[in-house]
Design a binder for these strands. Structure first.
Lengths: 169, 169
DNA sequence: CGCGCATGGTTGACGTGTCAATCAAATGAT
DNA sequence: ATCATTTGATTGACACGTCAACCATGCGCG
């Protein structure tokens, strides 16, 4: 119950069925559509892109509303260059600020501006409502439970537990 | 059992739980990671981006390997401008060709070149194997069944059956 | 100290996606 | 026939993401 994947050896050599492939495609399409809808609604209602929102969320949850650039990148799992590009744009819109880091002259400290904090706060409740409306309201509690299990299985498969690394083929 | 959503009135007014929100975020993150991995593998192994693959797949399944531009857009659910931009790039790489449409002088007929067909054919089996490896192999048959149901529920919620449109609030 | 390398971060080039504007051909109403 | 409207498709401007190159600072080690 703690290994990386359930279908390890029995069906592992069989080819993927067309149903499984169809499910994969539907998964990609459906999540893409949901992201598109929610992103458009977020932008319309609050002027923030999903990427903006992600950055502001991490910053607003950080201690003193500030983070080193690389910590921010690690928190939201972005490449550093992507973050750098995006921060430049966000700085231009006065959502965040970049100052030099006192303890490391190479570093940059990213901090939330009052404008940024205000926009994030005004965006958060409508965005949660939109997620509920378009996603959560569609599923039963049983489906939520199943989905949680599916996502855990996928994550375990993508990032196998290093402790159980001895039983590979 | 044919309405647009299961949780129609009872829990509809309740706020979304933090668990539900966390599942949504995990869903977005996990599918994004899967797309990233599979996209990178596809590009590395066959020189095609996921978008290229999508276009070529639609064309190769079309009658006589050719489609009107707008039909192609409808098939893969892309905006026409997006498709136009992408077709220009693909045309530059000789994957597809655009000729004028005989029946409508405004139209463009997009057709697969031999190069494009060959690249698509060589990409298809490794790509299917990658999907199996990173996605399908992680799930049990029961999870597949559950996921199919979840996706159907989400789709029904996004696109409610017009025939049952009389019982809205 | 001085050399080499690792680290933190930025930049530029390029492919990609969206939006609004554009344009020409088709359509339809009078 | 004429003119407004719709339709098929392209374009340009811009936001975004990735990749490789870059630069400066920090750090280990002789």
């Amino acid at each position: 119950m703690s290994d990386g994947g359930p279908a390890t050896s029995a069906a592992a050599r069989r080819r993927m069925s067309v149903e499984e492939l169809a499910i994969w495609r539907t998964l990609v399409d459906t999540t893409a559509e949901l992201r598109r809808i929610l992103g458009a609604e977020l932008l319309r209602d609050s002027g923030l892109s999903p990427a903006d929102y992600h950055v502001l969320l991490a910053l607003s949850e950080a201690e003193d509303r500030r983070l080193r650039s690389s910590e921010l990148a690690a928190t939201i799992d972005w490449e550093r260059s992507r973050l750098s590009h995006h921060l430049k744009r966000m700085e231009g819109r006065h959502l965040i600020r970049r100052d030099e880091c006192p303890t490391d002259n190479r570093g940059a400290e990213v901090s939330l501006t009052d404008d940024g904090a205000r926009m994030f706060r005004s965006a958060t409740a409508p965005h949660a409502r939109a997620i509920k409306k378009h996603f959560a309201d569609a599923l039963t509690p049983e489906q939520f439970e199943a989905l949680a299990g599916i996502l855990t299985a996928l994550q375990n498969h993508l990032h196998p537990d290093p402790a159980a690394e001895d039983l590979h083929d």
